[in-house]
Computed example of a mutant assay.
Amino acid sequence: MIDTHAHIYLEHFKDDLDEVVKRAQDNGVEKILLPNIDGSTIESMLDLEKKYPDICYPMIGLHPCSVKEDFKKELQLVEEWLGKRNFLAIGEMGTDLYWDKTYWEQQKDAFHFQCELALKHDLPIVVHCRETIDETIDLVKVYKNQNLRGVFHCFTGSVNQGKQITELGFYLGLGGVSTFKNGGMDQVIPHLDRRKVILETDSPYLTPAPHRGKRNEPSYTSLIADKVSEFLNLSIEEIDDLTTANANELFFPTKK
Rank of each mutant, 00 (worst) to 15 (best):
D226P: 02
S235Q: 09
A245K: 14
V228R: 03
S235M: 07
I224G: 01
L223E: 13
N246Y: 06
D241L: 15
I239P: 02
L250W: 13
L242C: 06
E238H: 09
T221Y: 04
N246W: 07
E237A: 15
T244I: 03
I224F: 01
L234K: 14
N233T: 08
E230A: 07
E237F: 15
T243Q: 04
Y220E: 08
L223T: 04
F231M: 06
Y220N: 11
L250I: 12
S235Y: 04
L242E: 05
E230H: 11
T221V: 14
T221W: 05
S222A: 10
S229I: 01
T244Y: 04
L234I: 10
A225C: 07
I239A: 10
T244K: 10
I236M: 07
A245P: 07
A247L: 14
A225H: 02
L223Y: 14
E249V: 06
N246Q: 11
I224H: 00
I236V: 12
F231Q: 05
L234Q: 13
I224M: 01
D240Q: 12
D241A: 15
S229T: 03
I239Y: 03
T244S: 14
N233V: 03
E249H: 12
S229K: 02
T243L: 04
D226A: 13
A225D: 06
I239L: 08
N233R: 09
N246K: 07
N246F: 06
A245T: 15
I224S: 00
F251A: 13
L223H: 10
V228W: 02
N233I: 04
L242Y: 03
L223Q: 11
S219A: 08
I236K: 12
S229V: 03
I224N: 00
I224E: 01
I239H: 02
E249N: 13
T243K: 01
D241T: 15
E238W: 09
N233S: 10
D240M: 08
N246I: 05
S235V: 01
E230Q: 13
L232T: 09
D240S: 13
I224R: 00
L242V: 04
T243S: 07
E249F: 08
Y220P: 06
S235H: 05
L232Y: 07
I239R: 03
S222P: 00
D226T: 11
E238L: 09
T244G: 03
S219N: 00
L223A: 12
E230Y: 10
I224V: 15
I224T: 03
L234T: 05
F251V: 12
T244N: 05
D241Y: 15
L223W: 10
F231Y: 10
L232N: 06
N233Q: 09
L232V: 06
A225K: 07
E238K: 14
S219W: 02
A225V: 00
I224C: 00
A225F: 02
Y220C: 06
T243H: 02
L223F: 13
T244C: 05
S219V: 00
E249D: 12
S219H: 01
L232H: 05
S235L: 06
F251Y: 15
I224K: 01
E230M: 11
A245V: 07
N248R: 14
L250P: 12
N248W: 09
I224W: 00
D226L: 10
F231I: 00
I236A: 09
Y220L: 14
T244M: 08
A247F: 09
A245H: 12
E238P: 11
T244Q: 09
S222K: 09
D240L: 08
T221S: 14
A225W: 01
L242K: 02
F231K: 00
T243A: 02
F231D: 06
